[in-house]
C-alpha cells in the first residue's frame, strides 16, 4: 500500500484485520481463530484455508464461543474470537466479563461489523451498545481502530500483549485517517487537527467525519481540534483534560448510544477535572429501517451534524 492514500478512497477494515491475523498466524503457532458460523462474515476464509486446524467454528453459539476461547487461552494459545459485534458482546456479556476479563486471559474479542454496519438488518444486528458495555468491564482493553492501518496495528498489539482485549473491526467503509506503519499506542489519543476554539473528539467511523467537520468550521473562522480516540479503555485522560481547558467546549461523536461509550468516558473525566460544556452525539434511539450510510446521516452522525453541535458550543 502507498504511504499516502487518496481521501476519497475508503476501506472495509475487515480486510486489514484478516491479513494481519493470517500474517501473525504464520509467525506464531499459538494464534487461533474462534467463530460462530461466521467464517465468511468475519473474513476468515483465507485463515481457514491456510490453517484449517487452527479455526474453531463452534456453530451458532456465542456464549459457548467465548467460553471455548477462554479455554483455548488456558491451553496456552492466543485466541481471536470473531463474531458480529452485537452477538459477541450482547449475547456473551457474562462470558466476556468472567471468562475473558476476570480470568485475565490473553484473548482478543473481535467485534465484527459494529455500529450500524448491518443497516437494514435493523437494531437486532446493530451494535451500538458494545462500547458502553465493554467499557464497564475491568481489565478489558477496548480498542476502536478508525481505519485499516490502525486495525492492522491493533491486531498486532493485541497479539503481542498479555491480557483480554475487545476491538471493533469495521465493515462500513471509511477513509484512512492515519498512515501505514504509524503504529498504534494504547492509551494515546491522536490529535489529527489542532485548534483551540472547540474540540471534536471522535472514534471509529466518526473520526474522518470529525476531520471533515473541522474543515467546514475552519471556513467559518472556527478552529476545531480533532482527537481520534482509538483506545477507549484506557483512554488518554490528559488529552481530554487539555481539550476541556484549552477550548470552549467538547463535541463527542460515536456510532453508538450516547450513554456510557465515548461521550460517557469523556464526560466522566471532564466533570471530575475541569467541567466544560459538552455535546454528546450518538445513536439516540432504536434505528428505523435503512442502510448504514442512510442511518448515519439520519442520526446526524456526519460532518454537518458535528459542525452544527460545535457551532452551538462556541456561540
Amino acid at each position: 500500500m502507498a504511504d499516502t492514500i487518496a481521501l476519497a478512497e475508503t476501506y472495509d477494515c475487515r480486510k486489514a484485520f484478516a491479513e494481519a491475523l493470517q500474517d501473525l498466524a504464520r509467525q506464531d503457532g499459538r494464534i487461533v481463530a474462534v467463530c460462530n458460523d461466521s467464517v465468511s462474515s468475519s473474513n476468515l476464509k483465507g485463515f481457514q484455508q491456510e490453517f484449517p486446524d487452527r479455526l474453531v467454528n463452534v456453530g451458532i453459539a456465542e456464549q459457548n464461543m467465548v467460553g471455548v476461547g477462554a479455554g483455548l487461552a488456558n491451553a496456552g494459545l492466543i485466541p481471536f474470537v470473531c463474531s458480529a459485534s452485537p452477538f459477541l458482546t450482547g449475547r456473551s456479556m457474562e462470558q466476556v466479563k468472567v471468562d475473558a476479563a476476570y480470568n485475565g486471559y490473553h484473548m482478543v474479542l473481535c467485534g465484527m461489523s459494529p455500529g450500524m454496519a448491518y443497516g437494514e438488518l435493523g437494531p437486532t444486528h446493530h451494535s451500538i451498545e458494545d462500547l458502553a458495555w465493554m467499557r464497564a468491564i475491568h481489565d478489558l482493553t477496548v480498542l476502536v481502530p478508525a481505519d485499516p492501518f490502525q486495525t492492522d496495528a491493533a491486531v498486532r498489539w493485541a497479539a503481542a500483549t498479555d491480557g483480554p482485549v475487545f476491538m471493533r473491526v469495521g465493515r462500513f467503509k471509511v477513509p484512512a485517517v492515519s498512515k501505514e506503519g504509524e503504529g498504534f499506542e494504547v492509551g494515546r489519543a491522536d490529535e489529527l487537527v489542532s485548534g483551540d476554539d472547540v474540540a471534536l473528539i471522535a472514534t471509529g467511523t466518526l473520526v474522518s467525519r470529525a476531520v471533515e467537520a473541522a474543515e467546514i468550521l475552519k471556513g467559518e473562522g472556527i478552529a476545531a481540534r480533532v482527537l481520534n480516540i482509538s483506545s477507549l479503555a484506557p483512554i488518554d485522560t490528559a488529552a481530554v483534560i487539555r481539550a476541556a481547558k484549552e477550548t470552549k467546549g467538547i463535541v463527542t461523536a460515536e456510532e453508538g448510544v450516547p450513554s456510557g461509550g465515548l461521550g460517557g468516558a469523556v464526560a466522566e473525566i471532564v466533570v471530575q477535572s475541569h467541567p466544560a460544556k459538552m455535546k454528546i452525539l450518538g445513536v439516540d434511539e432504536f434505528a428505523p429501517t435503512g442502510d448504514a450510510a442512510f442511518l448515519l446521516n439520519h442520526f446526524g452522525l456526519n460532518a454537518e451534524g458535528i459542525a452544527k453541535a460545535a457551532r452551538e458550543l462556541v456561540a
Binding site: E120, T124, P288, F294
Partner: peptide, 13 residues
C-alpha cells in the same frame, strides 16, 4: 421491504 424508513425491516418488528 428494507427500504429507508419502511415498517418492513430486515428482521420483523
Amino acid at each position: 421491504f428494507a427500504k429507508p424508513l419502511s415498517a418492513l425491516n430486515g428482521h420483523p418488528n
